[in-house]
């Protein structure tokens, strides 16, 4: 029985602390944001994306943001429901799976929570969300192919190394190449894939097979930086020159800083951006209250050995910077 007053005291203290905390929050009038995202260990892209979200939607900037990181679609949906119950103002979603979101999006709508999709689209009625801010994979492919058409001497014989078959990035980044090949602007001499893991080793094997089959090629179009790296390793082992002054031109995707340093050093030739930093744009929309509707594509760029600068690498790159002049073989 002696314990009872103590427990009561403890409860009182907890309540005091809690009410004090919420009083501060109320005083500052933070905008409540729930972010449903994929886990940072998924890729360098996601790591940059998650960090960017945390940096932009900070308390200093006037936001009370919580982020859930999971690659499980049902866990994501459960997290979204939790945020809706918590009464967030905005729900930001990068979905693990494009389907299964109808119910939760509708309940968000009923609760007056405004939904913004980033990076990944959801198969649902466009009225179920405000806006989706995405990377246009088709546009990225076009950027790369235009670079190839303008910078590689004719005849262009290309080795295509695709990512995970059927993924949005693979479909978009392949489309422009396949179209150019159909129009006779270039020839695809080898068509391979790095598999589900966009694997460096698999990409290397694709190029080794092309070399073993005596294929004559002067461009490698690898749909991410790791696969471009594997492809170059195959060229190195076979003694085939590449890069700025070499025979085979190398183009990769994703703007990893090691890849950009390789481009800068002329070890590779070009790299196409896939921008993980959507937070600033979304923050601007929320702050100004001027939220567009439908699908908005981010502006993305291609950098090559002639145009790249240290500032580009610092500003647009993702992942660690090996340092100027360091080549990642």
């Amino acid at each position: 029985m002696k314990k009872l007053p103590r427990v009561g005291l403890l409860l009182l203290m907890v309540m005091l602390v809690l009410s004090y905390g919420s009083a501060i929050v109320a005083a500052e009038e933070l905008i409540k944001i729930g972010i449903v995202n994929l886990p940072p260990e998924e890729s360098g892209y996601r790591q940059a994306n998650v960090e960017d979200m945390n940096r932009v939607f900070s308390r200093e900037n006037g936001y009370d943001a919580k982020q859930t990181n999971t690659a499980d679609n049902s866990e994501q949906i459960a997290a979204a429901r939790g945020y809706i119950r918590d009464g967030v103002d905005y729900l930001l979603i990068s979905a693990a799976n494009a389907s299964g979101w109808d119910d939760v999006l509708q309940s968000a709508k009923r609760a007056g929570v405004r939904v913004i999709l980033f990076d990944r689209e959801i198969d649902t009625d466009p009225s179920n969300y405000e806006v989706a801010l995405l990377s246009d994979m088709y546009y990225e492919g076009e950027l790369a192919v235009n670079w190839v058409l303008n910078n590689v001497p004719e005849p262009i014989n290309l080795v295509l190394i695709r990512g995970q078959m059927g993924s949005a990035a693979e479909i978009g980044r392949s489309a422009a190449v396949l179209k150019a090949a159909e129009e006779g602007k270039l020839t695809i001499v080898a068509d391979g894939t790095g598999g589900d893991t966009w694997s460096l080793e698999e990409a290397r094997k694709v190029v080794e097979a092309a070399i073993a089959a005596n294929k004559d090629f002067n461009v490698i179009y690898a749909q991410n930086d790791g696969m471009a790296q594997g492809a170059v390793q195959a060229l190195e082992a076979a003694g085939i020159s590449h890069g700025k002054d070499g025979k085979v031109k190398i183009i990769g995707f994703d703007f990893n800083r090691f890849a950009l340093r390789n481009v800068q050093a002329g070890y590779w030739d070009a790299d196409v951006q896939c921008n993980p930093r959507q937070a600033a744009e979304i923050e601007k929309w929320i702050r100004t209250g001027n939220i567009p509707s439908g699908i908005v594509y981010q502006e993305e760029i291609v950098l090559d050995s002639n145009t790249i600068t240290d500032e580009d690498i610092e500003k647009y790159g993702i992942n660690v910077d090996p340092g100027k002049g360091v080549i990642t073989r």
């Binding site: 260990e41 790591q47 090691f258 992942n319 660690v320 090996p322 360091v326 080549i327």
Partner: peptide, 8 residues
Amino acid sequence: GKVSPILA
């Protein structure tokens, strides 16, 4: 450290 360290 949440990145892909380079072994150059």
